[in-house]
Nucleic acid binder design. Structure first.
Length: 479
RNA sequence: GGUCCCAUCGUCUAGUGGCAGGACAUAUCCCUCUCACGGAUAAAACACGGGUUCGACUCCCGUUGGGACUACCA
């Protein structure tokens, strides 16, 4: 009851994931999206999506759709799905706000050429100084009306020349920046598009974002954002900067380290539950020592104060373990859907698919293993007759025992040809004549492989006719 | 170069001043017809140097190392 009241009194949590459509949704982005999602769900708040497509050069056709689909596959559906905010559709709004800042004297029109700026920058670097805008236009008082529609210009924010800017980060605590070291950031580009900094805070304000949870790389530009909030007179959200996800060599995760796109993991045979479990654990940990977690459990346990400050290396081995655990826990129906994603819908229509999935569930690390793992059920591989011999046993013994097994199971009715029945019939023989000497040749004759599931599982799936055929193939070899 | 962030087994992490614990991976053993599962055991870490303290992985300072940022990219 108390919590209920507290929730009413507290401002409702609203968070957003704001990717740039420059390609696939990668692992790092997915983790940022996920932590936002967890935070929203844990607090009964909203998780929204916004597309930050203000860089026309890096824009990749179709990536908005890919990102939305990737999120959907993970189960992280934003609540504004039907009306996602897209920055490129709001150019006039950003312009209006930028002009407003110019009028108030918080920003100014800058007509310096890119060449001049680049030359300045180089000179400053050579002199060992931080490269910053020299401020030619800062006090020039150029009016919008002088340039708008007439010449190329940008709008720059007027950063304070002195003082400290304090960022109170929910994960990192108090971080102090020296205002004089922060450049007069461009807010409106000469192509009329806003920069990230402008569009970001206008949109966060308009969407009512209460908590900005984003990657660590944004921490150094947070003071600019704070100043911008102040200039507009808006209440700023709370900030939380997530640690980076790193490659095994501690560098930034990139293509050269293998799969980085979320969809690549889908095709590689990972379950979304496993991916979420794994990326959830990258930089966060529940209070108790549990690591195999469902989405529900993570939502229940999540809190920002348990988020790590240091970067976490993406270790695929742990992902594999988590994936195998989630495969074991998943139902045959769920796995069938995921298998269809990888191998196509025709594939899962095969006879016996349910039985095969049920059997493979316990031994698969990735769903992509499924096909190869079960290939022998459809086509008996060719094998050497020496493989039919268990350890130091002999060809004669294998021949003898296989004959005896064949005799026994030939008596079993087709309808009765099930694992439990077959076990009852064959096991006494195996116990009598040595388990290895009976079961090993039996299993090899059925699978044609040195490694496989147990013989009774295989016979159950193969059926009486095929079982007998395969044993006869082995007997032929042994003659 | 400057600014900022970070630092516990190979990896993910627990730890908030009092014996450094768990998980993945690795190795060995048990279970077992094989593989997988499961069970047990082992090896494995507080980057370094000062300070504060009866006592420091923990607090402070410095060093080293790693990372991010320093764009009309996000």
């Amino acid at each position: 009851m108390f919590n209920f009241l507290k929730n009413i009194l507290r401002k409702k949590v609203v968070v957003r994931f704001a990717p740039s459509p420059t390609g696939e949704l990668h692992i790092g982005g997915a983790r940022t999206a996920f932590f936002n999602y967890l935070f929203a769900k844990h607090n009964g708040g909203k998780f929204l999506l916004r597309i930050e497509d203000t860089d026309r050069e890096r824009y990749v056709e179709g990536s908005v759709e890919r990102i939305i689909k990737s999120l959907a596959w993970l189960g992280l559906n934003p609540e504004n799905a039907g009306k996602i905010m897209v920055q490129s559709e709001r150019l006039n709004i950003y312009k209006k706000y930028a002009f407003e800042l110019v009028e108030k004297g918080n920003a100014y029109v800058c007509i310096c050429s890119k060449e001049k700026l680049a030359a300045d920058q180089e000179a400053q670097m050579k002199a060992g100084k931080p490269p910053m805008y020299a401020g030619y236009c800062r006090e020039a008082g150029i009016k919008i009306s002088e340039v708008e529609g007439k010449k190329s210009y940008v709008v720059r924010m007027k950063m304070p020349k002195s003082g400290k800017i304090i960022v109170d980060d929910l994960i990192r605590g108090r971080v102090e920046f020296d205002a004089s070291l922060i450049d007069d950031q461009v807010l409106l580009k000469s192509d009329g598009y806003p920069t990230y900094h402008l569009a970001n805070i206008i949109d966060d304000h308009e969407m009512g974002i209460t908590h900005v949870i984003r990657a660590e790389e944004w921490l150094p530009s947070t003071p600019k954002h704070k100043i911008l909030y102040k200039m507009f007179g808006w209440q700023e959200p709370q900030f939380a900067h997530l640690p980076m996800i790193l490659a095994p060599d501690k560098s930034k995760l990139s293509k050269r380290h293998g799969a980085t796109g979320v969809f690549e993991y889908k095709n590689l045979g990972y379950l979304p539950e496993a991916i979420l479990n794994f990326i959830g654990l990258l930089g966060w940990h529940p209070k108790e020592d549990r690591e195999f977690l469902s989405l529900k459990e993570m939502i229940k346990e999540f809190s920002l104060d348990r988020v790590q400050k240091s970067g976490a290396i993406f270790d695929v081995k742990k992902l594999n373990w988590l994936n195998s655990e989630h495969i074991k826990k998943a139902s045959v129906t769920e796995l069938k859907h995921s298998l269809a994603d990888i191998f196509g819908h025709e594939f899962i229509k095969k006879d016996l698919i349910d039985k095969l999935i049920f059997l493979s569930k316990e031994r698969m690390e990735k769903l992509s293993d499924f096909k190869e793992m079960n290939e022998f059920f459809f086509n008996l591989p060719s094998y050497e007759k020496s493989m039919l011999v268990w350890k130091n046993s002999s060809l004669e013994k294998s021949l003898e025992n296989l004959k005896l097994v064949l005799e026994k199971i030939s008596g079993v009715e087709e309808s009765d040809f099930k694992k439990s029945k077959l076990e009852k019939i064959v096991m006494p023989l195996a116990d009598e004549r040595g388990r290895g000497d009976v079961l090993w040749p039996l299993r090899v004759s059925l699978s044609g492989k040195d490694k496989s599931p147990g013989p009774f599982d295989i016979m159950d799936i193969l059926g009486k006719q095929e079982t007998i055929r395969r044993i006869n193939v082995a007997l032929e070899k042994l003659k």
